[in-house]
Computed example of a mutant assay.
Amino acid sequence: MRIRTMAASGYLTVEPESGVQPVADIGWTPALVEYERHDAYRELIDRASLATRLEAGLIFAISMAKLLVKRTIKYEFIPYDVRADRSVAGRLRFAGTALRNIVSGDARSRKLSAAEADAGKMAEHGIHVVTMPRDRFAVLEQAARVEFDRLAARRGRSNGKRQFEESRGQASRAEQRELFDAIETTLREAGIFDVASAYLGRKATLVDVNPQINDTTDTFWRDIFPDAELKTLPPTAYCHRDASGGDLKAIIYMTDVGDRNGPFSYVVGSNRMKIRRLDDLICEANDSNGLAGTDARARARFAALPRKLRQKGSFGNDLTPDSALGREIGQGLWAVTAGRGSIVLFDTKGIHRGGMVEAGERRVITCVIG
């Protein structure tokens, strides 16, 4: 970790490691992942039955319809408290928030240039890292203790095949006001809100708070192609772009994170990927409908889709080491190893991964910035 400059009182900004090379502007096309030549997909594509094609097409159509509604109302920018309230008043509040989002225009009106977006070259790199002073971390740690205790108890009831969602909690602003206040104060003091606002071209706010615990019993990142019995994971395993509406996220390290503790990793510069809106929606739809999985059933359905629809944001597991995109990712991947109290702000549409814990335990708070 290379310290660059002093930010606000006691906060330090961090540069990528010297060996990390920001990627060139990537132009996304479905051909970047060669499914027709991939050992795990090739035969499935060739022998997809009519019934499987129809089934996969229906699944895709339904998920795309749902996705278009979510994008129209900017679902990710609606706080959890509003989304989760099922009362009549709550549903009216949700409808009002959705309507305001619809008429507010594009959620990301513009991206500023690297020269305009200060503090960490966010527009150029897609990632901005800050460390906080010890006294601020102590306040945040105390405010988060109850939520982490609750999450740890829930994780303890796992059946040994723990999936991603079992590792993440969902805090409520109404019930965890102290935690939200502590996070907002920290992000404001660290300049995170200023950087996010400059990047988005509008005022950025804290939308959601998700405490997360990962350890060696998590299996979501290593259980890929279960029927193929892979001896080694591909170098780009678990690399993905989020199926989201263009929000940013800030990950706060609540424990020290080294090379083997599942450091958050980001392909520096991949936020500048050029991708058509339709292709982006196709990727998001398949990431949300189960067709992006690597188990045999998911692959059979994915392979049965028309070629144009065979796209996913979680494509890292499908890249071979010798692929051009795989090599590009390898050169630009920054594994953010840092101490507790570090904050990683990033564009969720850039290529990233995290939580691949090989030793010890990692605790973080993931914040959605909208």
Rank of each mutant, 00 (worst) to 15 (best):
A115C: 09
E116G: 01
A117T: 14
D118P: 11
A119I: 13
K121E: 15
K121D: 15
K121V: 11
M122G: 01
A123H: 03
A123R: 03
A123P: 03
G126S: 07
I127P: 04
I127E: 00
H128G: 12
H128I: 12
V129N: 00
T131S: 14
T131F: 07
M132L: 11
M132A: 14
P133S: 02
D135E: 12
D135W: 10
R136N: 10
R136H: 12
F137C: 08
A138G: 07
V139I: 14
L140F: 09
A143H: 01
A143Q: 01
A144I: 02
R145P: 02
R145W: 07
V146W: 12
E147N: 15
D149Q: 13
R150E: 14
L151M: 05
L151C: 00
L151N: 04
A152D: 14
A153D: 12
G156V: 04
R157K: 14
R157C: 07
R157Y: 08
S158H: 12
N159V: 04
K161L: 12
F164G: 01
F164L: 13
E166K: 07
E166P: 04
R168F: 11
G169I: 08
Q170E: 13
A171D: 07
R173H: 09
R173S: 10
A174C: 11
E175S: 12
Q176L: 11
E178W: 05
E178H: 11
L179D: 03
L179F: 04
L179Y: 00
F180M: 00
D181T: 05
D181Q: 11
A182Q: 01
A182M: 00
A182W: 00
I183A: 04
E184F: 05
T185R: 14
T186S: 13
L187Q: 04
L187H: 05
R188W: 09
A190G: 06
A190S: 05
A190W: 00
G191T: 00
G191K: 01
I192C: 10
I192L: 08
I192Q: 05
F193V: 05
Y199G: 08
A204R: 10
